[in-house]
Amino acid sequence: MSTEVAAGIAYWLRRLGGAVTGAVGQLGYASRFLLAVLWHTPDAFRRIHLTLREIYFAGVLSLVVILMSGLFVGMVLSLQGYETLKRYGADEQLGYVVALALVRELGPVIAGLLFASRAGSAITAEIGLMKTTEQLAAMEMMAVDPVARVVAPRFWGGVISMPLLAALFSAFGIFGGYIVGVRLIGIDSGAFWGQMHAGVDFWPDVTNGIIKSFAFGAAVSLIAVFEGYDAKPTAEGVASATTRTVVVSSLAILALDFVLTVFMFRGAKLV
């Protein structure tokens, strides 16, 4: 092996090592950050107006995009589902299929992805800009901990908002499925609701969806506040932190969804 090749391999190994240790270090920092946020949770609830404000910004202001997306996803699901079920003469099962897909899977996942794009990115940008304009440093110098005053309320605002948004997404999705399935295609309304009522159980179907949406809300909120707090205090730094929030949150939602689904199916089998 020539010296140049060996030097090249050593260079890439060093870069790989640097990247891995950097990622592990960042993970450790994020874990400590999560502990600090949890430590300051009582502050977030003692000053409940701050958390309510964040629920408004992360939750209420996300309603339009969540509800509209839910409606259209439900409509598409109904159309696609009908085309498939009709082949097997099971088109009356449409309500069941639409509801199950939404409450178990699509509701939490798509609502989580939309939440990361709209609210997560906004939280990162807001905290990042507060850092860039020295508002966080000013708070520290006023003996006010920014994690307690700024981060914890935003984190819990996101955690609380996400399951509510996912539930509304599923509800509007089912309504969209009803419009297409019953009003446009002409499936019997009683069959649509009856099959759904008979087939979808609160436990485990709805409960699993709620658990997932809580997990996605916690993951997205943590990533959003961490990326904002850790952003480089420059315009470019805030921009790349915002992008990272959306990318990392989306991947985290999909990976968490797989892990949680594995555990939930395993639990269902044991039952």
């Binding site: 304009t133 020295e134 508002q135 440093a137 000013a138 110098m141 006023m142 003996a143």
Partner: peptide
């Protein structure tokens, strides 16, 4: 720090 006051370069007012 409660006995400090600090004026930041661009004010650092809470927007």
């Amino acid at each position: 720090r409660r006995k400090y006051g600090m004026l930041f370069q661009f004010g650092a007012l809470f927007t």
